[in-house]
Amino acid sequence: MATEADSSSDEIDWRSEASSVEVTRRERLNEFYRKRLYEPGLIAWSDMRTRIGLSILSVYIAMAVAAVFGLWRNPSPNQAERLLAPFQTIQYPLGTTQSGVDLLALMIDSTPFILLMVLAGGVWATSLAVVVGTVSGYKGGAVDSAITSISDFVMAIPGLPLVIVLAITLSPENPIFLGVVLTINYWAGLGRSIRSQVLSIRQKSYVEASRTMGTSTPRIILKDILPNIMPYVMVNFVLAARYTIFASVGLYFIGVLPYTGQNWGVTLNNAYNQGGLFTFQALHWLLVPIVTIVGLTFALVLISQGMDRIFNPRVRTRLTGESETVTEENESATTESM
């Protein structure tokens, strides 16, 4: 009887231990959701710039979805509807081209390609610059010298001629590959800038404390250094994305990149060659792709400015439900005691 009682008590202890482990895992998931998703989302959404930027960007995403799933008409010529002005008919809200192609259909058809290209270019340039800059700035010594020498060499190569030569040689048609080609050496200057940021951060007391405690280098970079440079990285990601948009449109406009399907730069080229800059009747043909390009760039800039608040500890404390008055009282009490 004693053995059975002992076994039952052991089973109860095992179940209680398992339940406590389960609760701990649930708490960890809740904490991860609160810290990584809910609080950043709350802070970002509290900024008007973020809301406006996301609203504009959602329009472009909806255009890309419509193009991928064929929810809008294909951009096909219609000689009976040539050079219609914007908002003249419901069927062609942005007007038509010289050959009667719906300009709205042209913009929608080009959007998935542009978004993929912009994302690839921004991620490539920013990610490589962050890796190069943080490792170079934190490690120092021979590693810093070697990485800095490589960055200086890449920076010495003229960017635009290099991109033109690569575009003519490779004729990239894949949007992801094209985004990488357009920002092939963009990372070097950004990497040097991030290195300068890291050199100042690595002298901070909390980084020295982590190093003294024997914390590994990857953990110090992830926990102590990257959060402090993320606002700068986000802004430069937007700059890299904007550079990708402008470079691609410019190269498509001058005919360096291959005309694969429709593109905002191709539309600009066709409008310019067929009098869009000189005749008022065709002016909308030139303005529609320009406004589309500016709108996407403006949305990215607004989002980057709003995302800067996520990494501000004062804003995070105020907007995630913690009391500022308690903090102020603690600060005043500390001052009085001193």
Score class of each variant (00 low, 15 high):
residue 80 A to H: 09
residue 72 W to V: 05
residue 113 F to D: 10
residue 72 W to L: 12
residue 75 P to F: 07
residue 69 F to I: 06
residue 68 V to Q: 01
residue 116 L to T: 12
residue 100 G to M: 04
residue 69 F to W: 13
residue 107 M to S: 13
residue 73 R to Q: 11
residue 71 L to E: 00
residue 92 Y to H: 06
residue 57 L to K: 10
residue 62 A to D: 11
residue 83 L to S: 12
residue 116 L to I: 13
residue 61 I to M: 15
residue 66 A to M: 11
residue 114 I to D: 07
residue 72 W to C: 09
residue 101 V to Y: 06
residue 85 A to P: 14
residue 77 P to G: 03
residue 79 Q to S: 03
residue 72 W to M: 02
residue 126 T to R: 01
residue 88 Q to R: 14
residue 126 T to A: 14
residue 115 L to F: 04
residue 71 L to M: 14
residue 120 A to T: 06
residue 111 T to P: 04
residue 100 G to K: 00
residue 122 G to K: 06
residue 111 T to N: 01
residue 98 Q to N: 13
residue 75 P to D: 02
residue 90 I to A: 14
residue 83 L to N: 07
residue 68 V to P: 00
residue 118 V to G: 03
residue 103 L to N: 03
residue 75 P to Q: 02
residue 64 A to L: 10
residue 64 A to R: 11
residue 60 Y to Q: 04
residue 110 S to G: 09
residue 94 L to W: 06
residue 96 T to D: 00
residue 83 L to V: 09
residue 98 Q to H: 09
residue 96 T to M: 06
residue 121 G to Q: 03
residue 121 G to A: 04
residue 102 D to H: 02
residue 111 T to A: 06
residue 89 T to W: 10
residue 73 R to G: 05
residue 84 L to K: 15
residue 63 M to T: 03
residue 123 V to N: 02
residue 86 P to W: 02
residue 83 L to K: 06
residue 62 A to V: 08
residue 100 G to R: 00
residue 71 L to K: 13
residue 60 Y to V: 10
residue 101 V to N: 01
residue 58 S to H: 11
residue 70 G to F: 06
residue 62 A to R: 09
residue 58 S to L: 15
residue 102 D to F: 01
residue 93 P to H: 13
residue 96 T to W: 00
residue 114 I to F: 15
residue 126 T to K: 04
residue 104 L to D: 02
residue 89 T to V: 11
residue 120 A to N: 07
residue 123 V to H: 12
residue 116 L to H: 10
residue 101 V to P: 02
